[in-house]
Simulated scan of single mutants.
Amino acid sequence: MKAVKENQTALTEDQKKELIKTNSNIILIKNYIETARRRSYYGVALWTIGILAISAIFIDMLIFQWQGIAPYFKHAITLGAVASIGLGVYISSTPGVLYSSFPSDLKDDLKLKSIGSPRRTITQLELELQLLREEKKLTQEAVDFNIERNRAFYKEDAFVYIEELRRESNFYRRVSNFFQMIIIAGASISTLGAGTSYFVNQISIGVAIASFCIAVASSMTGYFKYKERSFYSQQTADAVEHEIEAFELGVGRYKAFSANNSEGKKNALEAFAQELHRLRQDQKMREQNLDQPSSKGEEGGN
């Protein structure tokens, strides 16, 4: 009987290690998916900027013919636009993440090993992510599953959830800071240009371009609410991390539960799962409110 219990304990430990490894691979795959998406965005942004620059040059040649702009400056803009289009097309035509950059442990667990391409696309990575999640689900179901063990796995998933939230928060923060820098730089250039355009008429085109950039950046930040998304993701990640620390230390709401008996541990785990579920639901509601127009979002938040 004792040997049977030892085998069950060893099996449980092996399954825990397998779940930890699977969770790590899931986090890596999600990071690669975000990297692939950013690469796709950069490609589209580059060739879009290049096309806009080329269009501006043609408009200048056909309609405005600004003589105040030096020819070498126009040539530099043209070369930069062509290079931007070429680089953007190259990035867009080679999407995904290099397979050679994957860790060896992750390569061993991947199901799609022979693709015939040096890069893994977003679709392929999402398929790998789905397969890893199915593998994790089968590993969990292989255990003598019950509600207490389900809550324990839910607690382990909280660490993955924290990593996802922090990654989202950092991404939205970088995007928000980028647009804020455009707004600040554009406002400074517009102010300086407005004061000097009285003496140098050619500077007015710079003021118009800076004003256009300010309008685009302000519209993007106002519509997509990057700063609010970053704040809410970071706030939820901190709240979940605080809840995990309180649960492990037995403080706060978990102080009333005795850690010396199994019944107290079950009650504490139940309270933790309930609070974590509430935090995740609150985060989803915030994201839904941010996706709504401003008036509806304000009504939903009241």
Rank of each mutant, 00 (worst) to 15 (best):
1 M>V: 12
5 K>C: 00
8 Q>M: 04
9 T>K: 03
18 E>A: 08
19 L>W: 09
26 I>F: 01
32 Y>E: 08
36 A>S: 15
41 Y>N: 14
49 I>E: 14
61 M>F: 05
63 I>H: 12
67 Q>S: 14
68 G>P: 00
69 I>H: 01
79 L>A: 10
83 A>C: 11
85 I>H: 08
86 G>I: 05
86 G>S: 14
88 G>M: 05
89 V>A: 11
90 Y>F: 03
117 S>Y: 00
119 R>S: 07
119 R>A: 05
121 T>N: 06
125 L>S: 09
126 E>V: 01
136 K>Q: 15
143 V>R: 09
145 F>W: 09
147 I>F: 11
151 R>K: 15
154 Y>R: 01
158 A>E: 10
158 A>Y: 03
163 E>W: 06
165 L>S: 04
165 L>E: 03
175 V>I: 07
182 I>D: 12
189 I>C: 04
195 G>S: 15
199 F>G: 12
205 I>W: 00
209 I>V: 15
210 A>K: 06
219 S>H: 05
224 F>R: 14
225 K>N: 15
226 Y>A: 01
228 E>A: 10
232 Y>E: 15
233 S>M: 03
235 Q>K: 13
240 V>H: 00
252 G>M: 03
254 Y>F: 06
260 N>C: 01
283 Q>M: 14
286 R>N: 09
287 E>F: 01
288 Q>T: 11
288 Q>I: 09
298 E>D: 06
301 G>L: 13
